[in-house]
Design a binder for these strands. Structure first.
Length: 454
DNA sequence: ATGTCC
């Protein structure tokens, strides 16, 4: 290990599921060339590809620091977007909620492969890949204000479609504006508790308000980009004299041909993911307008799978770092120049999707935030998909959720069972540990009214 | 996460 491993967690949250190698992965990441300060893990840490999910690692770009696709994940720029409705939950009587959920269930494409809100050709897709959500808005899929409330204003700079394989583009063509599967969802929620009135007010949130949370990523396009660049780096590593304890940690110097190629391709996938969430927002807006007649204003949009080049003070000197966040969310403190002007006094909004049927959170960045201003990203899995599918009956789970008043529009019974709340850590404990560790503070807690499940 | 193996 070149640096220590630092795990932010309560004892109860430490990964202990049989065979969960997450803490070994924290150790493995600590061996990467150029890593600075520590290999960090958030309270929702669990076993991932190479890096743990919930891992944060920064490398010094000026002294051979590496970039590793495993430190971003296969679902590049997977993230969350929250929209606030004009209506409060009191206005959403059961029959109106049912109509709304039926319409969302009809118009939100989801599941492996199939369906997209926006059918584009190659030329149009290329604009999406370089200009992300901004291009979607320029083409009428949203309003200018949406972009002010997106991380990076909806566009990650430096995207080069020339670094992306034909196969990646092919996979991306038919999926623009779709949830995908696994833990991805679109939920109708209500604000249950506001912890910080001033911050919530600035974000446009109040108690009892209806919201829409969208959790999805870069679909097959991002997956293919990760696959392609892991293979390239696996072959190139030896030329740079790099050895890693796990082939899944394939990496190259940030400042190398392969490193720059990955970052340019990663930005392509990030822009696809941001446009994807923008298009799904527009579909949700149409469904709300048609069924309950109210609008949806964007609260924020933020990724939890990304590497970014950031300048941080290390031992009193500014260093240009490549900060990998995989299942970890950036959480800038108040006053940072990258924050939207009207939110500058409150810290970066951090959107935490809970497990299906449980709560979700809005958090904010705090001064002195550790781990390069990062915090948790969600509940964190504790049981494998296989085990959850064996132990949970999807149809029974849906009945239980409906009995709690949560409308469910799913895709497959098995997929529903794999995402059972029992397969995940308790989101309340994860958020409590994150706040307790000084990584963020609570702004609001939201509860589900209806879920469209990928 | 992922046309859950080109």
């Amino acid at each position: 290990m070149r640096v220590p491993g630092v795990v932010f967690a309560s004892h109860a949250l430490l990964p202990e599921a049989a065979g969960d190698q997450a803490l070994l992965q924290v150790v493995n990441v600590a061996t990467l060339p150029g890593i600075v300060m520590a290999s960090y893990a958030m309270p929702d840490v669990h076993w991932g590809y190479g890096f743990p999910i919930g891992g944060v690692a920064a490398t010094d770009t000026a002294s051979g620091g590496v970039i590793s696709p495993g430190g971003v994940g296969f679902d590049i720029s997977c993230g969350v977007r929250l929209l606030a409705a004009g209506d409060d939950r009191d206005a959403l009587a059961p029959h109106r909620l049912r109509r709304l959920m039926d319409e969302l269930g009809r118009c939100i494409p989801r599941g492996a492969g199939r369906g997209a809100v926006w059918q584009v050709g190659r030329a149009e897709l290329e604009h999406v890949l370089t200009d992300g959500a901004r291009y979607a808005v320029e083409r009428g899929h949203g309003v200018a204000r949406d972009l002010w409330r997106c991380e990076d204003e909806g566009v990650l700079p430096g995207a080069d479609p020339g670094q992306v394989s034909d196969r990646s583009v092919e996979r991306g063509l038919g999926q623009l504006g779709s949830l995908g599967s696994g833990n991805h969802f679109l939920e109708v929620q209500a604000v249950e508790t506001v912890y910080d009135e001033a911050a919530a007010g600035a974000m446009g949130l109040r108690e009892r308000q209806v919201c829409v949370m969208i959790h999805c990523g870069s679909r097959g396009l991002g997956h293919q980009i990760c696959t392609d660049h892991v293979r390239t780096m696996d072959r190139a590593m030896a030329r740079y004299g790099i050895e890693v304890p796990d082939r899944q940690l394939a990496c190259v110097p940030v400042d190398s041909e392969e490193g720059r190629a990955y970052l340019a391709a990663m930005a392509v996938a990030a822009n696809y993911a941001r446009a994807n969430r923008q298009l799904l927002s527009e579909a949700a807006r149409r469904a709300f307008a048609d069924t309950v007649g109210c609008g949806l204003d964007l609260v924020y949009d933020i990724s939890h799978n990304l590497a970014k080049l950031e300048t941080h003070q290390v031992a009193g000197a500014p260093l240009r770092l490549c900060v990998h966040r995989k299942g970890a969310t950036r959480a800038l403190s108040a006053g940072h120049p990258e924050l939207p002007r009207d939110l500058a006094g409150f810290g970066q909004p951090v959107l935490i999707p809970g497990t299906m049927g449980t709560a979700s959170y809005v958090l904010a960045g705090v001064p002195g935030g550790g781990a390069w201003h990062s915090t948790c990203h969600g509940a964190g899995r504790v049981r494998s998909r296989h085990r959850a599918a064996r132990e949970v009956d999807g149809q029974q789970l849906r009945s239980e959720l409906e009995a709690q008043g949560i409308a469910v529009r799913g895709t497959s019974w098995r997929g529903l069972a794999e995402e059972a709340p029992t397969a995940y850590k308790d989101i309340d404990r994860v958020v409590e540990a994150s706040e307790g560790a000084g990584l963020c503070r609570k702004v609001a807690r939201l509860v589900p009214l209806g879920v469209v499940k990928g």
